[in-house]
Simulated scan of single mutants.
Amino acid sequence: MEKAQRKKEARIQRQLAQEKKRRNMRIMVWSLSGLFVLLIAALIVFWPKPAPLSFEYDKSPLLGNADAKVKIMEFGDFKCPTCAYFSQNIMSKIKTEYIDTGKASLSFQNWTIIGPDSTTAALAGLAIYHQNNDAFWKFYDALYTNQPPESESWATVDYLVDTAKKQNLGIDYDLLRKDIENKTYADELAAQNNFAVAHNFTGTPSVLVNGKKLDDNTALNYDNLKAAIDKALKEADK
């Protein structure tokens, strides 16, 4: 009888020891989890934020005041439907409220990610810009306003020169044709593409405000983009 009792007590002690071991293990796991969460939070708070990217804004097509406190940079593709949406539905409103009032400027660089049409249209845009900055923006608006479906191959030399003529740009159209055909500004285009790739841009349009890359939810939503510009204005005033 006493032997059975001792066995029972020993079993209970083993069970208690095992339960204590499991409890200690849970405490250790919870503690490590808590430390891990604190470590992640500390990294988020103290991890150095990437420095704003710098541009020579005066060496790209520029819309607005060159000395504006907020400088918006768009990397776009004239073949890209989302870029057309951005230009016609978002940037057009930003232009009225911020660019035309001198608070912000818009610069443009190419990122030709869709296909051969992207490259040809970009070369045309660069050729026009190097003749006349204001003419570039009329061409920019015309291409996006009348952008054919992405599935079509439309950016021929004839189409691009005819589009420029229809806008009465007042440039040398023969030189424009020559520059497109000879790919006069291919190196400049390559440098812009390489910049986008080097900084891990994920699509077009890629939009930056004072050198800070915006996510798509901010760039492609008017209210969110407006908030980002307002924030940049306040930071510039400090």
Rank of each mutant, 00 (worst) to 15 (best):
Q15G: 04
I12S: 14
I27R: 11
R26H: 09
R11C: 00
E9L: 13
S31K: 01
R22L: 11
R26W: 15
M28S: 08
L35S: 10
I40P: 00
M25F: 11
R22N: 08
L35N: 05
L35A: 15
I12P: 01
S31H: 01
E19I: 08
F36E: 06
R22E: 07
K21E: 11
M28Q: 07
L43G: 12
W30I: 09
E9N: 14
M28N: 05
K20Q: 11
L43K: 05
V29A: 08
S31W: 01
L38E: 04
E19A: 09
R23Q: 10
L16N: 15
M28E: 06
R26M: 12
R23N: 12
V29Y: 05
M28F: 13
M28Y: 10
A42P: 00
I40H: 05
L16W: 13
V37N: 02
I12E: 15
S31T: 13
G34Q: 01
L35G: 12
I12G: 14
E19L: 09
A10H: 12
S31A: 15
R26V: 13
I27P: 00
G34S: 02
M25S: 05
R14W: 08
R22M: 09
E19W: 03
I12D: 15
S31L: 13
K20C: 01
V37P: 00
V37A: 09
M25E: 05
S33I: 08
L35M: 15
M28I: 14
R14I: 08
R23L: 07
I27H: 05
R11L: 06
E9T: 09
R23M: 09
A10I: 14
F36W: 13
S31Y: 02
A42W: 04
R14M: 10
L32V: 08
L38H: 02
A42Y: 04
I40M: 09
G34V: 01
M25T: 08
Q15I: 09
I27V: 11
A10P: 03
L39N: 04
L35H: 04
K21Q: 14
F36I: 09
A42G: 07
L43S: 06
A17Y: 10
L43E: 05
Q13D: 11
N24P: 00
R22C: 01
A17I: 08
W30G: 06
W30Q: 08
A10E: 15
L43D: 04
V29L: 13
R22I: 12
L43F: 13
A42L: 07
W30R: 07
S33H: 01
L35R: 03
N24C: 03
R23P: 00
K21A: 14
L39V: 10
M25Y: 06
L32Q: 06
W30Y: 15
E9H: 10
M25D: 02
W30A: 14
